[in-house]
């Protein structure tokens, strides 16, 4: 998958969301009915997110991105992502919950900008396939943190597990995921960039009552 193809796909998403938002706004003006405004907000948020990702991808492509690592309370980062995604979740009538268990005070060493983009992406994606709920959970190993975003939908189809997801961005055929319209290709791209920028990060997929994507972020050094 070339940068141009990813870029074109992102622009395609932007166009669709913008068209939908304009259509809803035209409808609202014509009928003087504001009941569809949450959907407009939803499309606008998705639009802003895609543009953010495209800008970031451009920076990666131009080698114009430097990792900016620091320690952050993980609970704060998750809370921020949940609040940022709330309009979309509300529009889709999907609830969200985070379970940090004993890791409530955990500090994570990461690039806040990249992690928040990835996390938002995973939440948006989960919201598409969820029936009613998206869950975030945290699991700490000795030198790594697992951050899982799961939905209560029908789960990933079996063939998706045949792909080696350990370094998704280096996989020869990420288009498979893109064709499914999951949006995961962008997430994978971000994860790859994060790896290259300095914090080793892996992605794995599981089915746990629905689809679940886990980011594993190394914490050594």
């Amino acid at each position: 998958m070339t940068f141009h193809a990813l870029f074109a796909s992102g622009v395609h998403d932007v166009k669709n969301h913008l068209n939908s938002a304009i259509m809803h706004l035209n409808e609202a003006y014509a009928t003087n009915n504001t009941s569809r405004l949450p959907e407009v907000a939803n499309h606008c948020y998705e639009l802003a997110t895609r543009l953010d990702q495209l800008l970031l991808m451009y920076k990666f492509q131009e080698s114009n991105y430097r990792a900016n690592l620091d320690y952050y309370p993980l609970a704060d980062l998750i809370n921020d992502a949940m609040l940022e995604c709330k309009p979309i979740l509300d529009a889709k009538k999907v609830a969200i919950e985070a379970n940090l268990g004993e890791e409530e005070d955990l500090l994570i060493r990461t690039d806040r900008q990249l992690l928040s983009i990835m996390l938002n992406n995973l939440i948006y994606n989960a919201a598409i396939w969820a029936k009613s709920k998206v869950s975030i959970s945290v699991n700490r190993h000795q030198n790594a943190i697992d951050l899982a975003v799961s939905d209560d939908g029908d789960g990933f189809p079996d063939f998706m597990f045949e792909i080696d997801f350990t370094r998704l961005h280096k996989n020869e055929n990420p288009r498979l995921l893109m064709d499914l319209g999951t949006g995961l290709y962008l997430c994978a791209f971000s994860a790859g960039a994060l790896t290259d920028a300095g914090t080793p990060c892996r992605i794995s997929l599981n089915n746990r009552n629905g689809a679940s994507v886990t980011l594993t972020i190394d914490q050594q050094g």
């Binding site: 606008c44 704060d76 809370n79 609040l83 940022e84 709330k86 309009p87």
Partner: peptide, 15 residues
Amino acid sequence: LKPFTPAVIYSRIER
């Protein structure tokens, strides 16, 4: 970060 909701801005102020 823009765009944000009242919930986001309040949560940041509170934090």
